[in-house]
């Protein structure tokens, strides 16, 4: 065999040399064309199939790859390397709904949940818009949130607080609107909202850095600063056996009315506050509940604790609507601010 092959090689080489570059070498075609064109003399032997699993595997192996590519797995998400972008995968409502500060939570309380619908290894995005109507004030807020790997949540939100007629009464002008920017970050430390031991909640730490855009006014009211940072520790668990969601958050804060009225005062700074939530799951898509949030009264304007009764409904995998009755107590000396809260959140 070796002898023949070296002979043939030599022949080919000689032929190629003599032919030169003018005539293309046709040897490769001559060599394998007959093999390809030849009709099989007998039907190809069908391999012995062990069982139906092998058939399924074989069918799968023979199927075209379809839309799968480096950028897509054919299921709607986008993949860059090993990171799934906007692939989703979370169970409905387990990303929470946007809070008034733009974090994932239950409306007025921050939860230990991570926003966005991404699973481990993925990146998710969500956006929200919230409106609160009170007897003397109107609240509008909107923001976006980036969820990374079910581990980290980064959020940015803006709140506009319209004083309507109260603006005139306070001497700051009809319809004066306070504006507050909140930059939030939350890191899941341990546990899982749904899975794992039922006694181990999802635990997360976070910060909320807030900047009032009414620096001169909030200082005039008595606030020590126009920007400040809240520190939070949250534990949240869905107790499936009772269909109940429980959340407890500790917040270390110096904010006056979330920061709309600045931070701290001449005599007082940081306070430890509590946010609690109880929810009951009516279905995969619907949850009702109540929340309570304690607030400091650093400015001495009679700032009250907040509470809400909420209902959230996941209209689709991506769109969640929240409606609530809120009792925000006294705001800027105007008491009994009870009203309606409406929020929409889209998440991927």
């Amino acid at each position: 065999m070796t002898i023949i092959s070296s002979c043939l090689l030599a022949l080919c080489h000689a032929a190629a040399m003599s032919a030169g570059s003018a005539i293309p070498v046709t040897a490769p075609h001559i060599a394998y064309a007959p093999v390809l064109d030849e009709e099989p003399e007998q039907a190809p032997l069908s391999p012995t199939i062990p069982d139906d699993q092998a058939v399924a595997s074989a069918i799968r192996a023979l199927q075209p790859l379809g839309p799968t590519s480096a950028l897509s797995d054919g299921e709607g998400g986008v993949r860059i390397g090993k990171i799934e972008l906007f692939e989703g995968g979370k169970l409905l409502l387990t990303n929470g709904v946007a809070t008034v500060e733009g974090s994932s939570g239950g409306g007025i309380a921050r939860w230990g949940t991570i926003g966005g619908r991404q699973m481990p290894g993925g990146i998710g995005l969500s956006a929200h818009a919230t409106a609160i109507e009170l007897p003397d004030f109107s609240w509008r807020s909107y923001g976006v949130l980036l969820g990374v790997d079910d581990r980290l949540e980064l959020s940015v939100s803006r709140a506009d607080f319209d004083t309507r007629d109260v603006g005139t009464a306070l001497g700051i002008g009809q319809g004066y609107t306070f504006n507050l920017d909140t930059f939030g970050a939350k890191l899941r430390l341990a546990g899982d909202l749904v899975y794992g031991e039922s006694w181990l909640p999802q635990i997360a730490v976070g910060i909320e850095h807030k900047r009032s855009r009414d620096a001169d006014l909030v200082r005039a009211i008595g606030a020590a600063d126009d920007e400040g940072t809240d520190y939070t520790l949250s534990a949240t668990k869905l107790l499936l056996a009772r269909s109940v969601l429980v959340n407890a958050t500790l917040r270390y804060t110096e904010a006056n009315q979330l920061g709309l009225l600045g931070f701290g005062s001449a005599g007082e700074g940081y306070n430890l506050q509590f946010e609690g939530s109880l929810g009951y799951q009516l279905s995969r898509r619907a949850v009702i509940g109540a929340e309570y949030r304690t607030k400091p009264d650093i400015l001495g304007l009679g700032e009250d604790d907040w509470l809400d009764l909420f209902a959230a409904y996941a209209l689709t995998d991506h769109l969640t609507l929240t409606a609530a009755y809120v009792d925000l107590g006294s705001i800027a000396t105007f008491p009994d601010q009870r009203g309606g809260f409406l929020s929409a959140q889209v998440a991927f």
């Binding site: 092959s5 070498v25 040897a27 490769p28 060599a31 394998y32």
Partner: peptide
């Protein structure tokens, strides 16, 4: 020029496995 020619020749002389080989047995499936 030489390499395709050599490849072609090697394809001709390469022995195909015997028809009807029981590959499951060969690989211990």
């Amino acid at each position: 020029m030489l390499i395709p020619a050599a490849t072609a020749v090697l394809m001709v002389i390469q022995q195909a496995p015997a028809e009807g080989t029981d590959w499951d047995a060969e690989f211990g499936v």
